Simulated assay, not measured.
Amino acid sequence: MASAIRNALESAVAMSHDESPVSKLAGSKPARICVAGSGAIGGTLAARLALAGHDVSVIARGATLEAIRSSGLRLVDTTAVNATPVRADVRAAERAEFGVQDIVFVSVKAHGLQDMLPQLAPLIGERTSVVPTINGLPWWYFQGEGGRFDGEAVHAVDPDGALLRALPWRRVVGCVVYIAAHVTEPGLVVTTNANRLILGEPDHQLSPRVTALCWYLERAGIKAEATARIRDAIWIKLMANLATNPLSVVTGGTLSQLHSDEGTRAIIRTIMQETLSVGRAYGVQPVVDIEQLLAQGLKLGAFKTSMLQDFEKGQPLELAGIGDAVVELAARADIPIPATRQLLALARFRSRHEPSPVQSNV
């Protein structure tokens, strides 16, 4: 199946990302945009872009699909003066029935990418820009980066290279997402922060299509930043995700609780230090101060991490991209990260075992 998808997309590889129609469309007419995935992040993006006047379609399933078809996609922005649901009219289907798109946002969990692949091919033409909004190290991480592992796969997230074969990396725009949102009921998304995305080409270029994507997002009420060093941005968020998401599963704590407790705060600091050491071994130069990140964590409030939300719903956890990929890169560079390995082991154990009932000997 992956080979068939690859054949459908093969011609895209030869196209320069500077030739994308996205850059030519900016400022002229609405873009054709599909959001594959209708959870908190996908729902936020789809609603805001539709409200900005774009031709937006959504791939959804089950109750969410039914809700969008009957009542539209609804968005509540708690940072707005009038925090009431706003309806965004989007097309919705379980499969990709929308034709070739200018932009495809892939907003499924990282472990759901391979299941989504068969649906992406009909959406992607020779000049379509694909923007995965996933957490952790992406499958395309070593593509176009020019280092000693250039062209290789990240086996923790793409063990057999299927993602690399199915989605040519030159069609991909790297993306780091800072959107705090949750789904309160099918078709209703609540955002609780100022939405922000960082976008960049895998090959370090500041391309016209990235500039155009930022233009679209800004006019949809989403702060967007273009960068020539997208991997720096990936590692900065990864430091926070790896230090807090698995820990939240183990403890059940919110972000404010984890950052305010002296014991868990020390664990977070250690994981951040280990993660940063791995990133630097691969040439990452993030402008980041760990103490500053810790201070920012105190301001996040009683917010549950996405991994804790998934755990409470009985859904798979994003441990591969957020954790296992870092362990893989650490092993390649012979960097010990004992605290990180132990935390991931605890989170994985917690995800597999429900607490046993307490039995009294009295």
Rank of each mutant, 00 (worst) to 15 (best):
I337G: 02
R165V: 07
R269H: 10
I335A: 00
Y282W: 15
I236K: 05
E201F: 09
F149T: 07
S260G: 15
S277N: 11
I268Q: 12
E312S: 02
A153E: 08
L319I: 14
S38N: 06
G42I: 10
A83N: 12
N135H: 02
R171N: 11
P286N: 10
A8S: 10
V189M: 04
D158S: 02
P122T: 03
A12H: 07
F149I: 04
A162R: 12
R95G: 14
G321M: 09
A80C: 13
P21H: 14
S260I: 01
T340L: 15
D203K: 04
L137D: 06
G112T: 05
E201D: 14
Q143P: 05
W215R: 05
L329N: 06
G283R: 08
R196V: 05
Q315A: 11
A194Y: 12
R170Q: 11
M116I: 13
G174N: 07
T254M: 10
E291T: 03
P30A: 03
G27E: 00
P316R: 04
A63G: 04
G99E: 00
R74M: 11
Q119W: 10
A162K: 14
R269W: 01
H155S: 13
F105V: 00
T64D: 12
T128M: 04
H155G: 04
I234D: 02
T79L: 15
G37C: 00
F303P: 00
R269P: 01
L329R: 11
T305P: 00
P208V: 08
V86Q: 15
P132H: 07
G125N: 07
H353N: 15
Q114Y: 02
V56T: 06
Q205T: 15
Q292N: 06
I271L: 14
